Amino acid sequence: MDAEFKRLRWRCRRGTRELDQLLGWWLETRYNAASPELRSGFAGLLEQQDPELWDWLLGKGQATEPNQAAVIDEIRTQHRV
C-alpha cells in the first residue's frame, strides 16, 4: 500500500461512524480503479467540513466541483450497508 493511500485512509477517519464508513468504502472499493480526476475529487472531498459532506451525501446539497460530485454520486448510488 503506498503512502498516498495510507494518508487518504487516515483522512477518511472523520469521527462520525457513518462518514467514516461511506468515505472508507469508496477508498477501499473504488479508489484503485478510479481515474486520476476522480481520485483528485475524492481528495478534495476530504478537505470539506463534515456537515457539508453529510448534506451532500444525503442529497441536501451538491458539490460544485464536478469530480467531487461524481464521487458523492457513486457513494450515494452504489454503497450498500
Score class of each variant (00 low, 15 high):
M1V: 12
M1P: 11
M1G: 15
D2L: 06
D2E: 14
A3G: 03
E4A: 13
F5R: 11
R7M: 11
L8D: 13
R9C: 06
W10G: 12
R11V: 04
R11G: 03
R11S: 08
R11W: 02
R11D: 13
C12K: 02
C12M: 05
R13Q: 14
R13S: 11
R14K: 13
R14G: 10
G15N: 02
G15T: 10
R17W: 10
E18P: 05
E18H: 04
L19K: 10
D20C: 06
Q21T: 14
Q21I: 14
L22V: 07
L23H: 10
L23G: 03
L23P: 02
W25I: 01
W25E: 06
W26P: 02
W26D: 05
W26H: 06
L27T: 01
L27F: 03
R30G: 10
Y31S: 00
Y31L: 08
N32C: 03
N32V: 01
A33Y: 10
S35R: 02
E37T: 13
E37F: 04
R39G: 06
S40L: 12
S40F: 08
F42E: 07
F42G: 04
A43T: 07
A43P: 01
G44R: 14
G44C: 04
L45H: 07
L46W: 08
L46D: 05
E47N: 13
E47T: 13
Q48E: 13
Q48N: 01
Q48H: 08
Q48Y: 00
Q48V: 06
Q49N: 12
Q49R: 15
Q49A: 15
Q49F: 09
D50N: 15
D50E: 15
P51K: 10
P51V: 12
E52S: 08
E52G: 00
L53D: 02
L53K: 00
L53G: 06
L53P: 08
L53W: 03
D55T: 09
D55G: 11
D55M: 12
W56C: 08
L57I: 09
L58W: 05
L58M: 15
L58Q: 15
G59S: 07
G59F: 10
G59H: 10
K60L: 15
G61R: 04
G61P: 07
Q62A: 15
A63E: 04
T64F: 09
T64D: 10
T64C: 04
E65Y: 02
E65S: 04
E65M: 01
E65C: 05
P66L: 08
P66S: 02
N67Y: 14
Q68K: 06
Q68I: 00
A69D: 11
A69S: 13
I72G: 01
I72Q: 04
I72A: 09
I72P: 08
D73I: 00
E74N: 04
I75K: 09
I75S: 06
I75A: 04
R76D: 01
T77H: 12
T77F: 00
T77Q: 01
Q78R: 14
Q78P: 00
Q78F: 07
H79W: 15
H79A: 12
H79P: 00
R80E: 11
R80W: 09
R80F: 06
V81M: 09
V81K: 12
